[in-house]
Lab assay of single mutants.
Amino acid sequence: DETGKELVLVLYDYQEKSPREVTIKKGDILTLLNSTNKDWWKIEVNDRQGFVPAAYLKKLD
């Protein structure tokens, strides 16, 4: 059920640097789980959840 889920576009590649982070690729469109922290957003990638720098993402309307 995708209702109410926010999507984000990945602006730059990011390689995870800790187990709490996930790797993302430029151009991916992913589900945003939590954006309350202005610097690190929690997203879902391939059934994995983790954090990436918010500056690497853009919210889609």
Rank of each mutant, 00 (worst) to 15 (best):
D1F: 13
D28R: 05
G4T: 14
Y14F: 06
V10C: 10
K38Q: 12
E6W: 11
D39E: 12
W41D: 00
V10Y: 00
L11R: 05
K38S: 11
W41E: 00
L7F: 15
T31F: 11
K58Y: 08
L33W: 05
D61R: 09
L30T: 04
T23K: 04
W41T: 01
E16Q: 11
I24M: 07
P53G: 01
V10N: 00
K5C: 12
L30C: 14
V8C: 09
A55C: 15
L11K: 05
K42M: 15
L32V: 07
I29F: 05
Y14C: 02
I24R: 00
D61K: 12
D28F: 07
S18Q: 09
R48T: 07
G27K: 02
N46Q: 14
W40M: 05
K5V: 13
D28H: 11
S35E: 11
P53Y: 02
S35W: 09
F51S: 03
P19N: 09
R20A: 13
G27W: 05
V10L: 01
L7S: 08
A55Y: 10
D61L: 09
I43Q: 00
V45P: 00
K58I: 11
P53Q: 01
V8M: 03
L30H: 15
Y56P: 01
D39H: 15
I43C: 05
D13Q: 03
P53W: 03
K38C: 09
V52G: 02
Q49Y: 06
G50Y: 08
L7I: 07
D39R: 13
N46H: 14
T3I: 13
T36C: 12
I24S: 01
K5T: 11
G4M: 14
R48A: 06
K38N: 11
Q49E: 11
V52K: 00
K38F: 07
T23W: 03
E6P: 08
V10W: 01
V22T: 04
V8N: 00
K58G: 06
L60C: 09
D1S: 14
Q15V: 14
T23A: 04
E6A: 11
D13F: 03
P19D: 13
P53D: 02
K5I: 14
T3G: 14
T36H: 12
K5W: 10
L32D: 00
G27F: 04
Q15P: 06
S35T: 09
Y56F: 11
K25V: 10
N34E: 15
Y56A: 15
V22P: 02
T36Q: 13
K25N: 08
G27D: 06
N37T: 06
K25L: 07
E21C: 04
D61G: 15
W41S: 02
L9D: 01
G4N: 12
G4C: 15
D13P: 06
S35P: 06
L30G: 15
G50C: 06
P53K: 03
F51A: 02
G50P: 01
N46K: 12
D1G: 13
Q15E: 15
G4A: 15
K58C: 14
A54W: 01
S35R: 08
E6R: 13
K26I: 05
W40N: 02
L30E: 05
N46T: 09
E44K: 11
L57A: 01
I24A: 05
V22Q: 04
